[in-house]
Amino acid sequence: MGTIFSFEYMIKSFPTLLSMVDVTILVTVVSEFFAIILGCIIALTRINAIRLLDKVCAVYVSFIRGTPFLVQLYLICFGMPQVLNYFGMENPRSIPGILYVFLVMSLHEGGYIAEIMRGSILAVDKGQMEAAKSIGMTGYSAYTRVVLPQAFRMAIPALGNNVVSTLKSTALIFNVGVVDMMRRAELMGSFSYRHLELYIDIAVIYICLCFLVQLGTMMLERCTRMKNSTVS
């Protein structure tokens, strides 16, 4: 080990690590997409107090919020193959790890988004729903056309925070065998013994990603607000 901190190595390895950023983005986008759908379903179930199902949803949300993400990740990624094996699947390990990661991340973020959506649906004025019903809309179209669009607009800042936290949880998925930036840094670090430089690279990439998400959230917020002001 010649120098203590090699700036050159940090610059040199940056493109290699950046080339793995697609895994991080893919996992974030896919799981956030499914999480929003799941979150809306859970939120609507709890608001409409569907018998028994809303109790199940309440326990689900409590479980997701009460246990660490890592435990959920390990539970699904290592426990699920065991369950599949028990139910007679031949070779559950052949399923690629990233599918399990999609599942865990969607379930995890879904639990949090359910609470966000529940808050913002309840924040939509009650009169909106009544008005929609009174002009003969069915419950389904009243929700999809009137209530949910308004709820989403209110939920944008909170959802943006949620995307950032999803993005940051992706730093953990390399634990279950998905090759992403963290895994690549670990492999490169065990050759060069320069962990610090590599992790600083990753930190820079994460900061840029978080910044982009925040920028996107702010722009989305501004767009939706302008639409609102022209209507009223």
Binding site: S62, F63, R65, G66, T67, P68, L70, V71, Q72, Y74, L75, F78, G79, Q82, V83
Partner: peptide, 29 residues
């Protein structure tokens, strides 16, 4: 969680160990 990992790989019983771990975290929370 570290102890759970050691236990899980020693006994090759991932599902059971992580279920118990999750319940411990859950009740603490």
């Amino acid at each position: 969680f570290g102890a759970a990992n050691v236990l899980a790989s020693n006994n090759n019983a991932y599902l059971e160990v992580y279920i118990v771990t999750a319940c411990l975290y859950w009740s603490t929370s």
